[in-house]
Amino acid sequence: MQAHLNQPCSWMLQLLLVSNLLLWEYVVSLPLCLEIEGSNELTIEELFDDAIGMAQYTSNLTTQISEEFDENFAKSLGYKARNSSTCHTASLLTPENNEQIQQTQLDDLLKGMISISRAWYHPLEKLVHEVAALNGASETMLLKVKEVEEKNQELLKKIKEILVRVHPGAEENVYPAWMGLAEVRSANEDTRHFALSNIFRCLHSDTDKVATYLEIVKCRVIHNNNC
Rank of each mutant, 00 (worst) to 15 (best):
L21S: 03
I36H: 08
N20D: 06
M12N: 09
E41I: 05
C9E: 07
E41P: 02
S29F: 15
Q7W: 03
W24Q: 13
L15M: 10
L16Y: 05
L32P: 00
L21M: 07
T43S: 15
L5V: 03
L47K: 10
V27Q: 04
L22V: 10
Y26N: 15
Y26V: 04
L23F: 00
S29E: 05
L22P: 01
L16E: 14
N6L: 07
C9L: 01
P31R: 06
E41T: 10
E46K: 15
L22I: 07
E37Y: 10
L32Q: 01
L32C: 05
C9M: 03
L15A: 14
L15N: 04
L30D: 03
I44E: 12
E41Q: 15
M12W: 09
Q7Y: 05
M12Y: 06
N20R: 13
S19M: 10
W24Y: 06
M12Q: 12
E41N: 15
W24K: 11
L32A: 08
C33E: 02
V18R: 14
N20F: 06
E35I: 07
V27P: 00
S29P: 00
N40R: 15
N6T: 13
V18M: 08
L23W: 02
Q14T: 02
L22W: 07
H4N: 09
H4T: 04
L47S: 15
P8H: 04
E35S: 14
E37D: 13
L21T: 01
E46S: 15
L23V: 06
S19I: 01
L5C: 11
Y26P: 00
N6G: 15
